[in-house]
Design a protein around this nucleic acid. Structure first.
Length: 156
DNA sequence: GCCAACGTTGGC
DNA sequence: GCCAACGTTGGC
C-alpha cells in the first residue's frame, strides 16, 4: 500500500521542469535540513510512493506528481563545505541528513494554485493549507491526493 | 531544561 | 518588501 506525500521547492531554485530535464527524469531530493521533513524521508518514504510536487513562493501551486525510486540514503551534500546546505555536524560515519530519489510521473496540464486548493471541499485538513506550515516534506492522505489529481485532469 | 534572540520560510 | 510563524541556537 503506497503512501502519499508532498514536497516543496522554490521553482527559482529547482522546478518541476528542472526535474523533467534530468537524465531519466530522476533526481535526489537533497538539501532538506529540517528534522521532521528528514524523518519522513528517512523512515517512511517507500519505493513507489507518490509525491505531489509543489512550487512555493512564486505562484504557489501543485504542479505535478513524482514517485520514490530510491529509499533513503545519506545526503552527501551536507559533507561538502562548498555546498549551500553544508552541515559540519553531519559526517560520513554519522550522517545527520538523508534524501530519497524521485522520478517525474507527470507534470499537470495546469498548476493548481494554493488559493484554489483552499476552496476545495475535502482538502481542509491538509498540512499544506495550515497557516504557517513550513514543512518541505509532508504526508498527504490518499483521499486528498486523489482529489488533487482528479482536479488537475478534469480541468485540463 | 528554559527561554530569549535570531534566522528562515513562505504567503501576501 | 513585510511580517507571521516557527525552528534552532546558545547562555544560563
Amino acid at each position: 500500500m503506497a503512501n502519499y506525500w508532498l514536497v516543496k521547492s522554490e521553482p527559482g531554485c529547482y522546478s518541476i521542469d528542472t526535474l523533467a530535464g534530468e537524465p531519466n527524469q530522476t533526481t535526489s531530493w537533497d538539501g532538506v535540513r529540517n528534522y521532521q521533513a528528514r524523518n519522513f524521508m528517512r523512515d517512511a518514504m517507500k519505493l513507489g510512493d507518490k509525491v505531489l510536487f509543489y512550487h512555493s513562493v512564486t505562484n504557489p501551486s501543485v504542479v505535478g506528481v513524482c514517485e520514490v525510486v530510491r529509499e533513503s540514503y545519506p545526503d552527501h551534500t551536507a559533507w561538502n563545505p562548498e555546498d549551500d546546505h553544508f552541515d559540519p555536524k553531519s559526517t560520513e560515519e554519522k550522517p545527520r541528513w538523508f534524501m530519497v530519489d524521485v522520478k517525474l510521473v507527470e507534470k499537470f496540464p495546469r498548476a493548481l494554485t494554493l488559493k484554489e486548493l483552499r476552496q476545495i471541499p475535502g482538502l481542509e485538513g491538509m498540512e499544506l493549507l495550515r497557516k504557517g506550515s513550513r514543512l518541505s516534506v509532508m504526508p498527504v492522505d490518499k483521499k486528498e491526493f486523489d482529489i488533487i489529481c482528479n482536479l488537475a485532469k478534469e480541468q485540463a
